[in-house]
Simulated assay, not measured.
Amino acid sequence: MTDVHPGQRVAMLADAQNLYHTARSLYTRNIDYASLLDEGVNGRELTRAIAYVIRAEAEDEESFFEALVDIGFETKIKDIKTFGDGSKKADWDVGMSLDAVTLADHVDTVVLCTGDGDFSRLCRHLKHEGCKVEIMAFRESTAEELIEAADTFRDLSEEQETFLL
């Protein structure tokens, strides 16, 4: 990666649902969050690492949340909503965006771990505010406009042994 030096302050915001579902559907594997954090920080000064997760009352869910904390992530947890028609919804797009905008004054680089194209406008805003924006996600599920809006893109699919368990 270019323009990386140890003094840079970094915030990593990980869209755990996006990463989980992509890793499971493409490779039937899980994300190695310790490697994700280590590689994303890349020897720089970590200011905040936040993993955005959804509580769906799944087996081993709480131990996963605890593992994220042990690795160094702060977890933000949202309960899944079930609507009258049986459909379910839960996403962190607004929460992640607000956190990124709030952190922009305190960091040099924001690492977004998501392939969601909804974050492309956020990338452009952060760059306008003087932040470098790096995306870490699976190429197969990353919106082209997100890649174009970021300063750098790291394809997790090209480094499966590093990023997948």
Rank of each mutant, 00 (worst) to 15 (best):
T152I: 02
V53Y: 12
R139W: 06
A16T: 14
E158D: 13
E74P: 04
L126H: 05
E159W: 08
I50H: 05
D91K: 10
T47V: 13
V69M: 10
A149Y: 01
L19R: 09
V10Q: 03
E161D: 14
E159F: 13
L68T: 05
L112R: 10
E145T: 01
T22V: 09
N18F: 14
R48V: 14
E66M: 13
A150V: 09
G40N: 04
Q17I: 11
S97H: 01
I50Y: 06
V4Y: 08
D60R: 00
S157E: 13
M1R: 06
R9H: 12
R139A: 10
T109W: 01
I54D: 07
Q8A: 14
L164W: 05
V41E: 03
V53N: 11
L13K: 00
I147D: 00
A100I: 06
R48C: 14
V111C: 09
I71T: 02
F64H: 11
L165T: 07
T82L: 05
D32W: 07
H106E: 15
A11P: 02
T162I: 08
V94M: 12
R24A: 13
T47F: 11
K89H: 04
E57W: 12
L122G: 05
T102N: 10
R124P: 07
N18M: 03
Q8P: 11
T75L: 07
S97P: 09
C113L: 10
F153D: 01
A143C: 06
F153R: 04
A67V: 04
K89Y: 06
R24E: 14
R24H: 15
A16L: 05
L68K: 12
Y20D: 04
T82V: 14
E144Q: 14
T102I: 12
E62V: 15
R124H: 13
V4M: 10
K132I: 13
I54A: 07
A56S: 15
I50T: 11
L46F: 08
V101W: 06
S63L: 15
A143K: 10
D116R: 04
G7M: 11
L122A: 03
I80M: 13
E129T: 07
E45Y: 10
G7P: 05
Q8D: 15
I31R: 03
Y33N: 07
L112N: 13
H21S: 12
K132W: 03
E59Q: 00
A16S: 14
R48K: 13
L19F: 15
D79M: 10
E74D: 02
I31Y: 02
G130T: 06
F153G: 03
F73T: 05
L46G: 10
K81Y: 13
D70E: 09
V94I: 14
G84Y: 02
L36S: 09
S141W: 08
V10L: 07
I71H: 00
H21D: 12
I31W: 04
E148P: 01
V10H: 04
